[in-house]
Design a binder for these strands. Structure first.
Lengths: 225, 225
DNA sequence: CAAATATAATAGTATTACTATTACAAACAA
DNA sequence: TTGTTTGTAATAGTAATACTATTATATTTG
């Protein structure tokens, strides 16, 4: 995924932001700086005041782009899932074997992330860290139903549905594809977090791909007829 | 699980609280009231001031029991996992067949919760709701490592390890038991949440036990030799 | 019954998320 | 040029929240 496109843009639901951060230098600095800072000090300690200070701007200027830090988190996760979907689509192009397609799909959502040089103002490795540690706070709220209605989580949903379809290419009778896919995605995120912070809750291995291998094995065993 | 014991107490790590809430009437009212309120308005909107008001006490009095609302959340989840472990132990007693033991273990951590009349000041159904919607906020913080050192998450850990051992009774060579168990526990919680709020991320069914059945099927398929 | 202690209430402070208003600057038209 | 519009950013707040210092009141104990 190196220098494939110089003019591609990841599209995010327009109702998440007040002004598109991709549309100005300040906007890109807000995204870049917030990823650095949230990854560094965590979402609770992160404030617009601190962010403004770190990018040499002001609190009010940031509020021109996002109406709250919650919306900024929604933006980051929405961007992440849109980016993942674009990676998935390209990884499956021209691959005919359904088994190979499923293997690639599971790999995309469970393997360690590498940087994508097409988006210079976004550090995908740190963003992946944030998605693992903070993104569940974006939907574990009392506003989830109304925000879901506005389509703020549709990137995640469409990712799940795409992979479910690949499962159905192999076994059209398997009834719980969606449940299986979201179990795998959330599960992989948890395993990475547990490996670093709560090792007794996972299996520790030297193998860099051990989490991906675990979920590939799991998925193929579970959907077999 | 009805009136089995009138004199049993669930033990929680003493460093989580300043004063044991089980030791006084006010303490029990704090637990009862906080479960009602967090389930009702969510952890973000929940404050000690509102809680004090609802149980006719004061903010400062609650701070005698818990040094922060975060610690109160840790207490609730620690209590929940200690209670789950006691349910697991009783469910497995005298059961010899390893397959039946595993089936029961997975059922305990994935089935819908019913009230336990042994603990009158705790509504286990609402507490389960809180664990599903809020408990990940207890460990997705920058303090996770130091709090883990103090053993605040040991109830969850020991639950995972107990079930892993049951898996090893069936297949001692299966290498990823811990990873599988935490995938199942977290997965089931997510599926219940998705069913209610983000239905496109799961499989909707009329069957009340569909989530439990999915994970029992999954576990047995995955650990087969 | 007095001293010691446990418990609870009052009245704060510091910080945070968020906003109302004003200031500035570039772009364009008359 | 001048005046108007529009995009952008800065100042200076407010309301609410998490948390605390201090005082008051019960309860227990010697």
């Amino acid at each position: 995924m190196k220098d494939l496109f110089s003019n591609i843009q990841i599209k995010v639901n327009e109702n998440i932001y007040l002004k598109n951060p991709e549309s100005s230098d300040l906007g890109k600095k807000i995204i870049f700086g917030s990823i650095e800072m949230i990854d560094d000090i965590g979402f609770e300690a992160f404030t617009f005041r601190k962010l403004a200070c770190s990018i040499s701007s002001t609190e009010a200027s940031i509020y021109r782009y996002f109406e709250s830090k919650h919306k900024l988190l929604l933006y980051l996760t929405a961007w992440y899932w849109a980016w993942m979907e674009y990676k998935l689509v390209f990884s499956l192009i021209n691959i005919i074997s359904p088994e190979e397609r499923l293997k690639r799909a599971v790999t995309i959502v469970t393997e360690p992330i590498e940087e994508d040089s097409n988006f210079l103002h976004i550090n995908e490795v740190k963003l992946n860290h944030i998605v693992i540690s903070e993104s569940s706070k974006a939907y574990l709220t009392k506003e989830v139903d109304s925000e879901n209605k506005e389509g703020f989580f549709s990137g995640y949903e469409s990712m799940v549905m795409r992979i479910s379809k690949v499962i159905q290419e192999i076994n059209p009778d398997y009834p719980n594809a969606n449940m299986l896919v979201s179990t795998v995605i959330e599960g992989a995120h948890h395993q990475y977090y547990f490996t670093e912070h709560l090792p007794k809750l996972t299996t520790i291995s030297e193998d860099r791909n051990c989490i991906t291998n675990f979920y590939i094995d799991l998925v193929f065993k579970v959907i077999q007829k």
